[in-house]
Structure formats: structure tokens, C-alpha cells
Nucleic acid binder design. Structure first.
Lengths: 208, 208, 208, 208
DNA sequence: AATGAATGAGTTTTCATTCAT
DNA sequence: TATGAATGAAAACTCATTCAT
């Protein structure tokens, strides 16, 4: 009976949050307008007051996910590169590991496969490019500070770390948490990062 | 109105092949009975002559995909471990890279996210476990032959290589083939495999 | 393309009415969503705006039918029992006899056989129990008023009258209106009711 | 592997028997060709070797059911009418009561409601007419033997007994066996039969 | 006498979307 | 800013039936 009116901005945010939860619970395809509307406590028609169509909602959800990724990665800035990356991936790891911790980063995989139709795919690529560029930037800054050798290819390293996060996501979604021991993840990251640090003469040589 | 009769076995295979193509083109969710039927040149009802339901078709597609993965991995057997893994991943890489090369292994990602509702998820986990076990076995055989040191954890290595393939799959599905240079993939694999042999003495030394 | 909007309550009622007519014409199994929708002048999808599924519509139809039965039986209350029952059964008889008189009570037989799969069966039993209980109550009241002897088993009598109505229904649905002369029906009822009234010394004795 | 060939006549009978069981278990509508074929151990196509279509099978089932009814009623012939009818209805009662006793007489109700489409309805009426005529005949013979008074209307009595059996069937199908005590059934029959002999003088007197 | 492979018409249900109010 | 009532297209699946072999 209480009026369910809400300032547009607030409602919009609420809808996106609800939608994100719905994608988390039912997958991208299972994120129907009905479920989102129910979750938001409005009618389906109301969703169209705030978004042009379903795709726009999903796009907003994707934005939210990448905002989180950006935030996580930003945590690595202004720290010794290796340490920074380790911390960031640690955070990421915890997010992915526990659905209920509020992290939804692995949901991006939903978009990877689910976004064939719609303009989602293009947006996805754009976002990921930007995210990896951010990572590469942070690494570059590290190089400037002398944290790591000049010869390290920042972009390449950034992509490898990104690849690592993807692998983690897949393991999570496959429900292989038990087989894919945490140490697999840790070990894999170790191998990626080990190549970098102090060993310009050994590994570095090879990398070039 | 030409009759489209075909021996059951053959038709079954044809349907699965068509279905695989449809999953490739439209995603798991987009793999509708209508599309599969059209592709196979039969009516939807005919599909039910050969499969109990949609899930069974999809399950058969998943089988096909893993058969491909098994075949690729089998190529690494009875070779020096590192070399074998490199070759196998190379093959995998080429398959993933080119849609039209006939490889569909990367489609497994479709099942990763798309199989929430169905019994597909369980099948998926089972298959992946078996596949990684196969890889670990091959590595164990290498240890027996003295290819690589005893201290290497075969299972862990197998999972890492698997993780690598997942990352490759994601890059492919994200449409990031250009950004995710082949060298990123190669480099990542290098780091995984480099860790193996030289240790504990020196990685670099061995690699050089 | 004229808009066919209608307040929900009204539409709901209309749908149920249409559905009842469809059951009358095509039987319970023949009461498809397509026919109901067409009859109501809406699309099939619209039916789902008002009812969760087909079963709910059918349940509403069943309710309507029993409402009619209750109403008919209620007409026997506060009258000398025998007379009351006679009048009520008379009304029932007329309803059953003429399809176009607007009575649909006999349709309950459709539900008797047609409700194997659905949750209709349970609802059916519940309704019929209540209906017969109503009849027994009315008879009890008659006993209190001294209309009929105490020794009469109200419940048993209620069931017998109910059985009589069933026989009438079957005759109707079998299309045996001509053979099953009205007098058969009347005679059968006579025999049921004759047992009751003034003859405590003759029939009554036997009944005890 | 064993040849499933069978002489046509035998197969035909087998199919009808299976079909009857299927109608018993799933209702008339649930009696699909697939189920009948499976039950008979042949393909659906084979059914068409023996019957023109589904309707013909169902018609044969209906025949079987009425054969049973005829057989039961025949048991009343050449006996004192009242006694004979009592025995026959007793047998009928037991059949209806226990599904697994092999009796399927109550299944005729399935045909009552389920046979709207098809020519089943017409056949049903024809059969029932014949069955009631048989009953009336038997009663007539009783009159000739002097068992019961001349003034009794044989046809009317036959229809009443038939009506009684219908009520029994409905109670059975409604799952009201517990409420519809056997005594209701017995009592109802008593009232029907009681009317016969004593009259016009006194029912009670004769019965006592 | 029976099969194997197929079909066409139909079933219930779900979904994103619209638009007058 | 929201709702209430609708729609059209599509989904998975079922059924009786056919016909060459």
C-alpha cells in the first residue's frame, strides 16, 4: 500500500543491483524481466521506465562487474608491483571463491558465453581491454619506479594475470573447487610472477 | 518432399554434429530444437525419435567436445613430457584459434555457464575430471621414464595446463584474439612448463 | 485490432465462464488453452496473466460447478425434508436435462474421469464431500423439526440422493435421455425417499 | 531377438487386453498408441496392421467391457428375479471395488466422458441400450415364471439397476470408497428392489 | 506380420515488450 | 514514476498416423 515510488536514480541503481543478484543466482539467460521486477518490487513495465530494454539492464550489470574489477586492480597501484599484483589477485580470489561474500567478478563468464546476441559482446570486449590496460599501466608505473626490470612486457604480463583470473572463474563455475586446490591457483600465479622479479639473467633472458 | 530417411545411427551422429555447429554459432542457449532440426533437414519431432529430449542431444555434444579434448591430449602420450604437452597445447591452440578448422573444444565454456538448470553440469564436472586425470597420467608416465623430476606434482601440473586452456577459451569467446597475442598464450604456457624440470636448482639454466 | 482490455476481475470471470462452456462442448480434455483463449477473445498468453496455469482455470470451473450444486441443494433447506429434496432434485433434473438451460452440474462427471493427472482429483473429492455434508445437514435439520423419523441415517440418505444425481448425469452424458425416461429418474428417487417418510412400521422396520 | 510374430487373431486380442489395462491405469485419454504398443511389445506401426486406427482399438476395448457386463448380468438369468439381481449386482460391486480383481466394468465411465470426439459415443449408447434390454428381458422372464408381479415395469426396473451401477462407478472413480460406505450401495439397491414384489399392498410386510 | 524413420498438427508455457492511464 | 492488461513469437515436447521395406 505504501507508495513504491522512488527517485529515478535510486531506482535505477536498485534495479541493477537486483539484476546482478539474479544473474548470480540464475545465470545470464535466467535473468528474466519478471525475476528482476519481482526482486525490485515493481512491475515489469516499470523496468522500461528506467531502461530501454533488457539489454540495457544487462549492460549496466556488466558495468558494475567491471567497476568491481577495476576497483580490485586499482588496489595494486603504488605498491611494489609483485606485491601489489599478489594482493589484488588475492582479493579477486576471495571474491570468486565465495559467492556470498558479495563478489561477482566471476559472473563475467556468464557474459562471455551468454552475450552472443545483443550488443553485450562488444561491450564486454571493450571493458576487458580497458581493464587489462589498467593493469598494464600499473605495471608500467612499477617499471618507472624500478620495481621490475625494464625488459618485462607489461601488456603481456597484464594479460597473463587476466588469464589466470579467467581460469579461476572457470574452475569456480565448473564446481571444481575441491579438485582445483587453492594451491593450483597459487602455484599458477607464482609461475607467472616468478618470471618477473629479480632474475634478469636467467628467466628474463628467456622471456625476451 | 523427397524422403529424408537415414539409418538411425547415421542420423544420430548427424544431429549431434549439427547441434555442435548450432552451439558454436548461437551458444548453448541458442541451440534450440527448431534450429537443430532445420540444420539436420528434419522436423523437430524427428529429433525425438533419436533422442529423449534436448538435454540428451546437448549431452552428446558435450561428449563430442570432450572426445576431441581427449584426442588432443592423447597426442602427448609417449613423448618427452614437456615436448608432448607443448605439442598438445599447440594443437589445442590452433583449434581454438580458428573456428573453421573444425575444432570446437573451446565450446566447453558454453557448457560451463549454460548448464545451470540441466543435468549437464554434473556431466561436465565428470568429464573435466577425467580429462585432467588423463593429463596427470601422461605426466606420471613421463616421471616413470625419468623425463621430469619426481618432485613434480603431476595432478597440479595437469590442472595448470587445463587452466591455461580455459584462459585460451575465454580469450577466444571474448573475441580478444588480437589483443591476447599468441605470445601471451605461449608465454603463459612457458611459465607453467618452465617450472618443471630445472628446479630446484635453476630454472633459467635449463631453459637456456 | 480493437483493444480488448478488461478489468482483471471481470476478465477472470469471463475466462472461467468460457472455459466452462468449452468443457461442456469439448470435454475436459478438449478444454485447451487455445480454445479458451479464442472463446474469450484474447491470446493464449493473456490467460496466463490471470491464471497460473491451465489447472487453475479448470479448478475455477470446478468451483463454479459445485457452486451451482450447492445453490441447488440449498433450495431444500427450511422445507419439509421430503418436499425439499424433491424440489431440489427437480431443479437438478431440469438443469441436467437441458444443456442450454444454463445448468452445468452434470459436467462434474468430466472431472471425475478427466482429473487423473492433475491436482483436480483431490479438489473434486473435497468438494463432493462438502456437498454431501451440506445435504446431510439439511436432512438433520429436518429431523430436528420432526419432519422425518430419528432413525433415518442422514448421511446415508444424502449419499443416496447424491448417487441418484450421478446416475442422472451419466444418463445425460451417455446421450440416453430418451431411453432413461424422466420417470425412471423420478421412480428411482421415489424409492429412495419412500423409505423415509411416514412408514416407521413398514419400511422403517426393515431399514433398522 | 526372438521373433515377436504372432497369429493375427491372437495379437489382436493381446492388443485389446493391453489397451484395456492402459485405459484402466491412465484413463481413456492416457491410452496412447505408444503405451499400448509398449505394453504389447510391438512397435506403434504394428498396431496399424491390426486396427485401422486408435478409435478401433478403443472400440474393441469398449466391446470387452460390455462383454463383461453382459456376462455378469447373464448370471441373473433363470433365478428368482430379486435374488438374481442381487447376486449380479454383488458381483458387479466386487468388480468395481477392486481394480486388481480383473474387473473393469467401471471403466465404462471413462468412455462416457472421454468419447466426445470419435464414434465412440454412439457405440457406447448402443451397447448400453442392449445391456439394459438384456436386463429387462431377464426380468420379463421372471414375470413369466411368476417371480414378481405383472405390474412391475421391467424396463424401468432395469434402468434403475443400471443407474445404481453407474452411481457405484462414480463413487469408485471419485475415490470415495470410504465415504460411500458399502452400505450406502446396498441400501440404495434395497430400495430399488424392495419396491418390486410387495407392492401394491405393503413393502415392509413382504420384506420382513 | 512387423519395423524403422519420419511427419504435421497440436499441446502448455515463457518471454520481452507495449501502451493507455 | 509507475501500473494493469495485454501481445506475438518462440520454446520443448507429444501424439496419431504413414509408408517403404
Amino acid at each position: 500500500m505504501a507508495t513504491h515510488r522512488m527517485p529515478a536514480e535510486k531506482r535505477k541503481k536498485q534495479i541493477v543491483e537486483v539484476a546482478l543478484g539474479v544473474v548470480d543466482k540464475y545465470g545470464l539467460h535466467g535473468a528474466t524481466m519478471a525475476r528482476v521486477a519481482r526482486g525490485a518490487g515493481v512491475t515489469q513495465a516499470a523496468l522500461y521506465t528506467h531502461f530501454k530494454n533488457r539489454e540495457q539492464i544487462l549492460l549496466a550489470v556488466l558495468d558494475t562487474i567491471y567497476e568491481e574489477i577495476f576497483r580490485i586492480q586499482e588496489g595494486a597501484r603504488n605498491k611494489p608491483v609483485i606485491e601489489g599484483l599478489r594482493e589484488a589477485t588475492n582479493v579477486y580470489s576471495r571474491f570468486v571463491g565465495g559467492r556470498r561474500t558479495g563478489g561477482h567478478a566471476y559472473l563475467l563468464l556468464e557474459f562471455v558465453t551468454g552475450s552472443r546476441e545483443h550488443g553485450l559482446r562488444e561491450a564486454l570486449g571493450r571493458h576487458q581491454l580497458a581493464a587489462t590496460r589498467q593493469l598494464a599501466d600499473i605495471i608500467e608505473e612499477g617499471k618507472d619506479r624500478g620495481d621490475i626490470p625494464e625488459h618485462v612486457d607489461s601488456e603481456q604480463l597484464a594479460w597473463m594475470v587476466t588469464g589466470w583470473s579467467w581460469a579461476l572463474d572457470v574452475a569456480q563455475l565448473m564446481g571444481l573447487r575441491s579438485s582445483w586446490h587453492p594451491n593450483v591457483s597459487v602455484e599458477l600465479l607464482d609461475r607467472i610472477l616468478d618470471g618477473i622479479d629479480g632474475r634478469p639473467d636467467s628467466v628474463g633472458a628467456v622471456l625476451s
